[in-house]
Amino acid sequence: MLPDETVIKHILADAGQSDADIQETALGLVCTLAPSVVASALAAFKESELDFATLVDLMGTDTGEEIELSYHLRSFTRDEEIHIKCRVAYDSEISSVWNTYPSALMPERETAELFGLTLSGHPNPKRLLTTDGVEPLLRKSSVIRTLQEVRDR
């Protein structure tokens, strides 16, 4: 289920990140990259012999200092999975990976909207879930309603 670490390192070196941080955690194999190389690394993973054909999931997390993006790749031929992570600053621009994985189209829009990021290279970088003017709701700085506010509706 876990791919070979040396092969991963080899692929990443070709994609321009030779000193990637690869860890085996409860999540699986987690590989932390610089945001600038994520798009090329994902393309390299898809084309590699590991055959990561599918982006299963894409999510963001507000760590309190920056936004952590997490890409979950799966290879159906080899039955292996890997998680790619990168950290970007608040309100920064992330480059879309839809050319490599079309399944990122909507999750990217959702993540960008709910964490207040902008998308570059996306064919349809509109808001997905909320209307204009709604703050990035999944950031830790966004607070939910209190019970009193609900009562005073």
Partner: peptide
């Protein structure tokens, strides 16, 4: 939870 992400299969079918 600090972050709870729900991977919804229907979202991918919709795309």
């Amino acid at each position: 939870p600090y972050r709870f992400h729900y991977k919804a299969p229907s979202l991918y079918a919709l795309q």
